Amino acid sequence: MSGPKQPPERDAGRMPRVKVLTTGGTIASRPRGADVVASDGPDELLTAVDVDGVAVQAEEIVRVGSYGIGDEELRRIARSAVVAAGANDGVVVTHGTDTMEETAFLTDLVHAGGTPIVFTGAQRHAGEADRDGPRNLNDAVRLAAHPGMRTAGVTICMAGNAWPARFATKAHTLAADAFAAPSSGPVAICHGGDVRVVARPDRPAGFALSVLDAPLPRVDVVSAYAGADGTLVRAAIEAGARGIVVAALGAGNVPPSMAKEIRAAVEVGIATVVTSRTGAGPVVPRYGGAGGGADLVRSGAILGGTLRPAHARLVLALALATAGSQAGVADLVARHG
């Protein structure tokens, strides 16, 4: 697939069209008894939109808390967003924050066009007096309609900051400004109805949208910790994983007994990508000895660069679904790492 394409120029004098796709999450949630559940649909969410000069329509894709999103929902949301981008000047996806970074990144990986796709949500539910959903939604609509965001790809907009999907992550469980991009920085800043674009992400060529036509290969994430052995690596293989992402220590190291099982996994054809559990910075083959990053590379493991574990899982799954060889898988991971 080629790199991002320029979207067609909008007809002079025509109001920009932004499609809002709703998927549930806290932004759509209200109290039900002692719990909070996704309740509001597109009509309710649209009542909060107040952006002059933009034509906004909404459509519901699914209505769930994002902790309930699995492979089928991931693929459906990403596909719906990319298809909507082909018929509008911008797309907004309202989404729960728990797995927003995964759906946004998957969407970016299959979005070849230049139409902005903006994910947004809320940290406070729709029944709270100080709810943040309306502001985030209005910021996202302005961002999606802004000409400076053309070819910026997919972003996550929360609390006035727009983060590139390639690097964005949820960094706080409850704070309104819950997202960050430690290995990057914001793409744009929204304040008082204004949008200021401050960066343009480097977007490598991604994957064809058709890769989402079938369930993605199983890829499991296994975390390293002091004294970790290979039990979880073996469990992933026994569960049917075709790939494993290791959330390694530091710059890409694991305990020696875990390294032994990683080597064994690679030897039986399980693609294994090494990332870091630290949250920022690349993995590098610096340290030798059993379990060091250099040792893992010699065993055949693939370094994931600056990919976070959850992001690397998606890249590896797409690579396994499209590449014809282990070398091809490694090349695709390297392209996005």
Rank of each mutant, 00 (worst) to 15 (best):
332 L>N: 02
17 R>I: 13
27 I>K: 08
118 V>G: 01
119 F>H: 14
89 D>T: 03
303 L>F: 14
115 T>F: 02
33 G>E: 10
12 A>E: 15
51 V>R: 11
75 R>A: 04
86 G>I: 13
71 D>T: 06
83 V>H: 15
50 D>S: 15
145 A>E: 02
310 A>V: 02
227 G>S: 14
26 T>Q: 05
217 P>T: 11
336 H>K: 03
205 A>P: 06
323 A>W: 01
85 A>D: 13
196 R>S: 11
264 A>G: 03
105 F>G: 00
99 T>V: 05
248 A>D: 08
260 K>Q: 12
271 A>G: 10
51 V>C: 03
298 R>F: 01
33 G>N: 08
240 G>N: 10
249 L>G: 02
52 D>Q: 14
251 A>V: 11
251 A>C: 12
224 A>K: 03
238 E>S: 14
38 A>F: 01
95 H>C: 05
225 Y>R: 11
108 D>K: 13
121 G>T: 00
78 A>W: 05
278 T>G: 12
314 L>Q: 04
326 Q>H: 08
255 P>W: 09
144 A>S: 02
186 P>K: 11
132 D>I: 02
297 V>L: 06
261 E>P: 05
46 L>Q: 09
260 K>W: 01
35 D>T: 06
60 E>R: 13
180 A>R: 12
292 G>H: 08
185 G>L: 13
145 A>T: 08
275 T>M: 05
226 A>S: 14
175 A>Y: 12
278 T>H: 12
330 A>D: 07
102 E>S: 08
160 G>W: 08
148 G>S: 06
10 R>C: 03
305 G>L: 02
38 A>V: 08
7 P>C: 01
115 T>S: 09
279 G>E: 03
147 P>M: 13
156 I>A: 15
292 G>Q: 11
55 A>E: 15
38 A>T: 07
158 M>R: 09
299 S>Y: 04
14 R>K: 15
332 L>A: 13
289 G>W: 06
137 L>Y: 05
100 M>D: 09
242 R>T: 00
127 G>M: 10
248 A>L: 03
198 V>D: 09
11 D>W: 09
320 L>P: 10
110 V>S: 07
248 A>T: 07
281 G>V: 06
179 F>Y: 15
309 P>R: 04
49 V>H: 06
168 A>S: 13
203 R>Q: 11
268 V>S: 10
22 T>D: 11
266 V>P: 00
282 P>A: 13
256 P>T: 06
24 G>D: 06
248 A>N: 10
27 I>N: 07
294 A>M: 09
39 S>W: 14
174 L>D: 13
130 D>C: 04
82 V>P: 09
188 A>E: 02
48 A>W: 14
269 G>D: 04
305 G>S: 04
316 L>I: 02
304 G>Y: 05
56 V>F: 13
242 R>I: 00
